[in-house]
Amino acid sequence: MVILVVVIGYPIVRAVMLSVFDYSLITGDAGATYVGTGNFSKIGHDPVFWQSLKNTAIFAVVSLVGGGLGGLALAFATENLQGPWRFLRAVLLTPWAVPVIVTAFLFQFLFLDRGGLVNDLLMKSGLAHSPVPWLGSTQWSLFATTVANIWQTAPFFLLVFTAALRSVPNEVIEAARIDRTGAWVMLWKVKLPFLAGPGVIAAVIMTIQNINQFPLIWAMTQGGPGYSSTTLTIYLYRLVFVSYNLGYASAIGVIWLVVLMFISGWFLRRRRGVSR
C-alpha cells in the first residue's frame, strides 16, 4: 500500500515541484531556477497552450460522440446477426486491435492529396473539383485526425454496447413487444437505458484516452500544419522531448491533471445519477 502511494504519488509530487522551476533537461539540476508561479502565469498568455487546449477538447469530444454513436449504431445493427453473419461483428471489431500507428498510416494514405481514396471518391462523385488537402491544411487536419480516431475507437463502444445489449433481460424485451413497441422506441426507450451505465464508464475511459492520444496525431500531422491539430499531448511532447523545457511542461501537466480529474469526477457523478 505504501509502495503504491509512493509509486503513484511520487511522479505527481515531482511534477508539482518542477512546475515552479525553470528547468531544462540540458542544464539539469544545476541550471534550475525558482520561478514561483511564473510558469503558470506564462500559460495564461501562451496562445499555443490555449489553441492546444481547444483542439484537445474538440478532438476528444467529437471523437467521443462519433465513436460512441458509431459504436452504438453498429451494436444495434449487429445485435441480431445469426450464424455465420456473426463473424461480421468480429470483423467490425478489428480496428480496435489495429495498432494505432498502423491506423495513422492507413488514414494518411486514405487522406492523401494525390491518389488518396477519400479525394478520389470526392472527385469522382463531383463533390470536389480539386483534391482537399486533408492533412496539409489548417481547416481539415484536426478533422482528419479525429475521423481516424473515431475509426479506431468505435469498435470499443461496439464491444461495450454489444455486451450491455446481451444483458437486457428477455422478459423486458418481450413485455415491450406485447406493449406494441416499435423498433425505434424499443431502441431508445427500452434498450438504451440498459446501455447508460456501461456507456458512461466507456466514455470516461475513452475521453481520457482521446485526451491523451499521441501517436495517431503525431504520425499523421505532427500537430500541424501550424498548430491546427496540436493537442496538449503534442504540445507537451515538443516541450519535453524537443525543447527539454521541463519546468513549463510540468506546469501544463499539473493543470492537465486537474482538468482530467474534474472530467472523470463529473462523469462518475453522472453515472451515479444514471443508476439511481
Binding site: 511522479p11 511534477a15 539539469g28 539540476d29 484516452q209 491523451n212 507537451l236 519535453v240
Partner: peptide
Amino acid sequence: PSARMTILRTSRPLRRWRIGMTAMA
C-alpha cells in the same frame, strides 16, 4: 537519488498515466 528523480520527472508529463503509474515506475 537525483538520477532517479530526473528520469521520473522527465517522463511524467508526457507518459500517458492511464497506462498506470505502477508499470511506468
